[in-house]
Amino acid sequence: MTHNTPLSPRPLRRLSDVTRRVLTAAQLRAQGVTAAETNEQCRPGGSWQQILPGVFLLHPGPPTSEERLHAVLSYAARSPFRESSTGAGGVAGVPAQPNADEPRPAAATPRYADAVITGLAALTLHGFASAPPLPSLDTIDVLVPRLRRLRTVGCARIVRTPAVPTPSYVTGLPVAPVPRALADAVGELSDAATVRRMLTEAVRGGHTEPAAVIRELTEARLLNRPHVADAVESLLAEGRAVAEDHLYRMVREHALPDPVWNVDLCLPGGPHLGGLDAYWPEQAVAVELDTRAPRQEDDALWSEYARKREVLERLGITVVHVPPRKLRDSLEQQAAVVRTALMASYDRDPAAYVVVLPR
């Protein structure tokens, strides 16, 4: 097989030497290929094709998904940190240049400055089952700084941003973090069921936390869209369910005493004190999950959390407040915090008697 032979798609987890087949005009010049030679190769019936302005595909067949991704990044990048070498064989279809037989460094996965794949393509790369396969996407979204002078063209859809996020790298490609990719994808979707599936999968699949997604949706001013607001309610419910599962795992896997789950406390014949996710009556230790949305951080809900904690601690009940992210990322550490609170209870004065009711 030569560079001129159309290549079949490969699984995303397997990198091919795509950098030999997708090159910019600058990279071709670095190989000693003149503009005239490039134009000759791209004539009808030629061995190459221009896939995007200044970006060339070095075979005549349809581009693979991997080639389209690299082409979009090559088009949008300010400049690669290094020009990729095509190896000792040079560029296919062009006469050998002087010194072409001299050894050259092995081709390296290129790094693209100020260009990050986002939107549906990014979600597909992150492994979302609810995102469409790459070959079905007519365009690939790519984040660039707001002041870049680029236009959407061909398969490259330019998404401008004040600050390009630090990317994750999937098969060597810079990809927006899941919350940002979700926000960019949701901004282009009008189907409520699809939006709900994607937001739910983000949390259920362990890709991210609801708070991070809602923060990006808020930044993108998408929460005023009814179908997005409805999906966010499902996202929060899913986030709580996942956090509760982690809490159950923490107790089970780290050999903590069994608490009573999802209870309300009240004083005998007195006022209701509030609900708790887990409570150890003998030690008077409670765990409460913080599943507020980011937009609620300074509102009445947080005031209610603080008021409840203050009342319970006045009664001698220790309250451990746990964000779901800490349960996901540091389960052992959170178990140690709870175990310490349980052990410390034996050195405290007995707590006030409270009535424990199922919630």
Results as ranks from 00 to 15, higher is better:
128 F>V: 06
125 L>W: 06
145 P>N: 11
95 P>H: 04
112 Y>P: 03
135 P>G: 07
179 P>T: 11
202 A>V: 01
67 E>Y: 03
133 P>H: 06
291 T>A: 05
353 Y>F: 11
176 A>G: 11
191 D>Q: 11
35 A>Y: 10
208 T>H: 08
268 P>Y: 10
65 S>L: 02
229 A>W: 15
243 A>S: 12
327 L>K: 09
107 A>D: 12
161 T>K: 00
54 G>E: 08
227 H>C: 04
279 Y>C: 02
359 R>G: 01
244 E>T: 10
207 H>A: 11
135 P>F: 07
277 D>F: 00
357 L>T: 11
35 A>P: 05
69 L>C: 10
212 A>V: 05
96 A>S: 10
192 A>S: 13
245 D>I: 11
166 T>E: 14
306 A>F: 04
109 T>Q: 06
51 I>R: 02
216 E>M: 13
323 P>Y: 08
154 G>R: 06
126 H>V: 09
314 R>H: 12
52 L>E: 08
94 V>F: 05
352 A>Q: 04
99 N>C: 09
286 A>W: 00
22 V>Y: 05
264 D>F: 06
65 S>R: 02
69 L>D: 03
233 E>M: 12
111 R>Q: 07
354 V>Y: 00
93 G>I: 03
10 R>Y: 01
238 E>V: 07
292 R>P: 02
14 R>A: 08
222 L>V: 15
154 G>V: 04
347 D>S: 10
352 A>N: 05
206 G>K: 13
225 R>V: 14
130 S>I: 03
232 V>T: 10
291 T>V: 15
341 A>G: 08
144 V>Y: 01
285 V>P: 02
7 L>W: 00
122 A>Q: 04
312 L>P: 00
58 L>W: 00
14 R>V: 11
314 R>Q: 10
67 E>S: 05
25 A>R: 13
246 H>E: 11
306 A>I: 09
149 R>Y: 05
78 R>Q: 15
85 S>Q: 07
87 G>H: 08
115 A>Q: 01
74 S>H: 13
75 Y>H: 06
312 L>S: 02
28 L>N: 06
212 A>T: 08
294 P>E: 11
185 A>D: 07
274 G>L: 07
35 A>C: 06
57 L>S: 01
355 V>P: 00
114 D>E: 14
215 R>V: 08
